[in-house]
Amino acid sequence: MTAVPGTYSSGVPLTCDGCGDVAMTHGGGLHDADVVYVAVAAIGWTGSAFARGPHRCSRCTTAVPALRRHTTRVTASTAALSLVTVRSTPTSSVVHIAGDIDAHLASDLGSVLEDAAMSRPYVIADLTDVGTIDSLGLATLVRVRHTARRHQGELLLAGPSRFIQIVPRTMRLHTAFRTFATLRQAIAAANGRADLDADMRGSHR
């Protein structure tokens, strides 16, 4: 374990798994003894959202070669092409994302999701293979949600990890998205809602 929450009022000691340095961060905003995302992000460290780590200080993060930290950080376009894939159903665009949704992927992912929101009523972000999401990634999802709503649609989240479920909650955004345990459930929900919308339109004719 590389972070020891202890009592939140006294702060959270973080140990860098790269160099062994220890930093004490403020514990404000933490609501789960296992989840230290807020404390890690507050001091510019990277790593796991959970106390067991691993975590790296800003110096060690910079020292790690870019290709090890993120296999497609070389260019924005390669990130989008290799980490994001899209397939369509009659009612939804399913966007599968692999890797972390962070500053290096957010812009390209946003473009893909925005296009998807304009091509189908429902956009399903398949998060099954996503490990973490940072504030820019979350902001991207919020922006796409607004785009989908402007087109009378909706952004659904499928298969998020425990960490990805916790991050919106810390930002008080956990009620902004309908979230499903599996992709199949999300697709079924989109299909069911589309059928209901069609029935309602028919009843007004």
Rank of each mutant, 00 (worst) to 15 (best):
residue 173 L to V: 06
residue 185 Q to L: 10
residue 123 V to Y: 03
residue 142 V to E: 02
residue 151 H to T: 02
residue 127 L to N: 05
residue 189 A to M: 09
residue 105 L to A: 01
residue 188 A to D: 14
residue 150 R to I: 00
residue 133 I to P: 04
residue 126 D to P: 04
residue 114 E to Y: 02
residue 153 G to P: 02
residue 168 P to T: 07
residue 109 L to I: 08
residue 138 L to F: 06
residue 153 G to F: 01
residue 167 V to P: 01
residue 107 S to C: 09
residue 140 T to N: 06
residue 166 I to M: 12
residue 138 L to Y: 07
residue 105 L to D: 06
residue 125 A to V: 01
residue 160 P to L: 09
residue 145 R to E: 00
residue 152 Q to F: 08
residue 106 A to L: 04
residue 178 R to W: 02
residue 123 V to P: 00
residue 174 H to K: 08
residue 165 Q to F: 05
residue 155 L to W: 03
residue 167 V to K: 02
residue 161 S to I: 12
residue 129 D to T: 11
residue 116 A to N: 02
residue 179 T to D: 01
residue 120 R to V: 01
residue 134 D to L: 07
residue 128 T to F: 08
residue 125 A to D: 07
residue 133 I to S: 09
residue 182 T to N: 03
residue 187 I to M: 09
residue 172 R to K: 14
residue 163 F to M: 11
residue 189 A to E: 13
residue 158 A to C: 10
residue 116 A to E: 10
residue 117 A to E: 04
residue 121 P to I: 00
residue 163 F to H: 11
residue 108 D to C: 11
residue 104 H to Y: 15
residue 161 S to N: 12
residue 168 P to Q: 08
residue 118 M to R: 13
residue 183 L to I: 10
residue 182 T to M: 05
residue 175 T to A: 14
residue 176 A to T: 15
residue 152 Q to Y: 09
residue 131 G to S: 15
residue 177 F to M: 00
residue 161 S to G: 13
residue 112 V to Y: 04
residue 174 H to W: 04
residue 164 I to R: 01
residue 152 Q to N: 13
residue 187 I to F: 06
residue 140 T to V: 12
residue 104 H to I: 09
residue 161 S to V: 10
residue 185 Q to R: 11
residue 107 S to W: 00
residue 154 E to N: 08
residue 179 T to V: 13
residue 161 S to R: 11
residue 141 L to E: 02
residue 171 M to G: 06
residue 169 R to M: 13
residue 172 R to D: 15
residue 125 A to M: 04
residue 125 A to F: 07
residue 120 R to I: 01
residue 171 M to F: 15
residue 157 L to R: 05
residue 131 G to L: 09
residue 110 G to A: 10
residue 129 D to V: 02
residue 157 L to I: 06
residue 132 T to D: 12
residue 107 S to L: 12
residue 139 A to E: 08
residue 108 D to N: 12
residue 120 R to H: 11
residue 150 R to T: 10
residue 159 G to F: 00
residue 180 F to P: 08
residue 166 I to Y: 14
residue 178 R to G: 00
residue 155 L to C: 01
residue 128 T to G: 03
residue 116 A to I: 03
residue 146 H to R: 15
residue 177 F to Y: 05
residue 127 L to Q: 06
residue 128 T to S: 14
residue 128 T to Q: 09
residue 111 S to E: 15
residue 171 M to R: 11
